[in-house]
Design a protein around this nucleic acid. Structure first.
Lengths: 302, 302
DNA sequence: ATAATAGTGTCTTTCAGACAGTATAGT
DNA sequence: ACTATACTGTCTGAAAGACACTATTAT
């Protein structure tokens, strides 16, 4: 065993007392919240079903940089709180709902992502059901809005070479709320050379969206999609009771794909339990209301 | 639109010049590397196959805190580098291999996880194939070792109540290298109340492992398992050419489960391409060598 | 009655799981 | 010849995908 420059001669307690945290220059750490919901659009026909749309919460910036542009809610992490706590604190400051699913998404650490200073941002995804969807009536309430989101893949590339493979996907995101229209184009490039895989996520174009937040939203939608397929995460977007058609529509709007009713119902059968309640006054046959089956567990493949 | 305390009257450029990054107290940000590999154990019979074991790279601390204990390689993130770059820099300082798969795992931000000061740690998982498995012959080379890892679930709990469900899983991790034995017990508790899900990961017992690193290792193994099933991540643990039995053993050691040969081969058939080469001198029938099929793409469910 | 949705039955194809069998090197 | 592994064939049952059919409400 090599000797370690006298470290053995002082106790851990002494070491901690002498420790100077300012030896290294430290970045700022912020927490950004990606708050998703799936909600209804007004219906054009009294007996037709209302359309569902995916929504994301954005706040209008009242400060430089990106003044007046829209950004994900967030703020700096306090020195005495955990990142989860910081995310919950931000959530509470923007919305009134407490019953929210929260999971860490990804930590963004590009040096130039914030023009002020080095800011590392730990992003969280939160899911709210549309029934509980209320904003906090705070002083800055006018600057917070739920935007509908549409996501469209506008280009795919796939270049194989000898030992290198570069694939890219370009996605257009569109946001609407009360006549406000934002859009952004985001490109994800995966460069694989042997096992060395580098992923670059860049904002090609942004109209009204601050920072690299379009990238974060795109990443979040992809994560949500994957989790939708393999886990029971959907129920965090549903009210306590829901019809199976409601549930199917949430899947459809997130996956951006139509599903066959009979097959869908068989697939999710184990995940839900029927209640005694039915819808009514809908202009057509009533539907049974279901709730999440808390006993449900996904079975393991392989 | 509300007016924002005169922010409109200065330009973004002026704002950035006046910006004081020291307004908030900032935590330290470190990057920790979870370097996995699957390698052979010596074989006891000349014609039997060698057993495979999962391995993780640990470094012995030469400093307080946790002096002489073993920890994941890592260090503080530089102020001018991205987190990915910091991870690659740490990787290069510990090993000689450059052809490594690297992905961000999770960011750990509990206030008390480091006794020195508030340290937020962004963890990365890296995969190396056993053929390339060489350590950097640096001055501190003696303090870096590949440990074999065994993971065993020693307790599961599942309590349903009215509106709350608490599940927990307790895992024992054992590490061995050159007669050095480390072990740790890690407990993961998921507390779900409606949609409000809180996950607590704690180290119940630790013999020789520093910080909360046992938690990180456990999380990494779980992530690796999931990715093994749904993605082509295995091939980052394989040399360029391998037999299908090799590949199956890597699955088996990571999933900790025996698989049936015929079924396994059908399942991974599309992911590999046969080469013209065969093994030889093994005391039994030679096996064809395969390589990863770069064209392969997993098909989408749902 | 009609429009619109709720909900079920069943056929086909695909795939996972289990198991038994054949093939081929080195000693 | 024997041992240990390499590799293949096939049966069963479950699940995915497609589609057609019946049921029930408000107007």
């Amino acid at each position: 065993m090599t000797s370690h420059s006298g470290q053995d001669t002082i106790t851990e307690k002494q070491f901690l007392q002498n420790y100077d945290a300012d030896r290294y220059e430290r970045p700022s750490v912020s927490v950004d919240l990606l708050l998703f919901s799936v909600s209804y659009q007004e219906r054009d026909n009294y007996r037709k079903l209302s359309n569902k749309v995916m929504q994301v919460l954005l706040v209008q910036r009242g400060q430089h940089p990106y003044l007046h542009q829209w950004a994900l809610p967030g703020g700096f992490a306090g020195i005495e709180e955990s990142l989860d706590e910081a995310a919950r604190r931000e959530l509470a400051s923007e919305t009134e709902v407490s019953d929210v699913y929260l999971e860490q998404l990804y930590t963004w650490g590009e040096p130039k992502r914030d023009p002020r200073t080095r800011v590392i941002s730990c992003s969280y995804m939160a899911l709210v059901d549309s029934a509980a969807l209320k904003l906090r009536a705070g002083d800055d309430a006018e600057d917070v809005k739920w935007f509908t989101v549409r996501r469209k893949v506008i280009e795919r590339q796939d270049n194989h070479e000898e030992n290198e493979r570069i694939t890219s996907k370009t996605v257009k995101l569109e946001f609407d709320a009360d006549g406000i229209h934002l859009e952004a184009i985001v490109k994800t490039t995966v460069d694989t050379e042997g096992k060395d895989t580098r992923i670059r996520r860049e904002v090609l174009q942004s109209e009204g969206l601050a920072f690299d937040h379009a990238t974060i939203i795109n990443y979040g939608i992809e994560r949500l999609r994957n989790k939708l397929i393999y886990t029971g995460i959907v129920f965090n977007l549903m009210p306590k009771q829901f019809t199976l058609t409601d549930l199917q529509q949430v899947y459809e709007v997130i996956l951006d794909k139509d599903l066959l009713k009979a097959n869908f119902r068989r697939k999710i059968a184990m995940m839900v339990l029927p209640t005694e309640y039915m819808t009514k006054d809908d202009g057509h046959r009533p539907a049974r209301l279901y709730r999440f089956n808390p006993q449900w567990k996904r079975e393991q493949n392989f």
